[in-house]
Amino acid sequence: MIADDLKDFKKFTPKTLPREEPFVSGHRACQGCGEVLALRQVAKAIGTPMIAVSATGCMEIISSPFPQTAWAVPWIHVAFENAAAVASGVESGLKILVDKGRIPRKEIKVVAFAGDGGTADIGLQALSGAMERGHNFVYVCLDNEAYMNTGIQRSSSTPYGAMTTTSPAGKVTPGQTTWKKNLPAIMAAHNIPYVATASPAYYLDLMNKAKKASLIKGPAYLHIYSSCPTGWRHGADLAITVSRLVVETNIFPLYEIEEGRYTVRKNNQPKPVVDYFKTQRRFAHMTPDMLQTIQERVDRDYQRLLQMEGLTNPAVVKEERKVAE
């Protein structure tokens, strides 16, 4: 039961944020990178002792150009599609070596990081396997909605309409023609103890979720919105602005699923989606019709999320109603 795992969990407050940086300065991420910021917040929240596993991708490249590493904690990168499998091995290895008395009995958090390509596409099988097997580690998808490291190609996590180098806004097709794959729902379908979405603009929420994820015994999945000024074509100072807007418009609602119970961070007066789309040039070509389609879909998806909450977590809904009255 996760209640036991979380009995000593204390939420972070602005005054109690850890000073420690398991991930340090000198990394080569682009100016204003939202992904490395999300990574930093997760690493801070979970803290040491930690073993980090990275999939190939931006965060791996920018953190480990030999002979320099931005990781102050033990870190391993093997390949693109296997962060979850490598983390499975790390976790299994640690556990058995502790059992056999070959390493000290100490709680070491294992955290796997991958981008959306490494999670939703090429790494989905390894992730599914690891989650199903119930390994005790946190898997963090840093979702910047395309293959940025290779030059902004579309992934199954690229949102509808977005322009990438393989979903260009041409005369016939207006950017990405498919809808973003719902990874948190897929993870929830694995019946793992903890799934959550987060955005670095809501840093306390993000860090509390990361901390919870690390305390819960068993697999935990964090899906973190990670803005990419380079790939999304927005100003270098806008990472937090867009990370906030995406939540305020309900395009990327913040919620957690604890042992199947949904808790949604409420936003019943969302801003229109257009407010978000106009911040990034990857959406510059979008027509009012497309925006309308997206608005309807966003509204519908948000309502569905509330319905899931109502179904799975009636206590929370009741409590909220009481507060509202």
Partner: peptide
Amino acid sequence: FCPDMAYTHREDGYFDWNGDYCKGCGICAK
């Protein structure tokens, strides 16, 4: 909110800016 950990705490509660790492993105100002 700094992606480059260019700010550090000071004893008096203010934050020091470190020009060695700041890439000048402007998130802090924003």
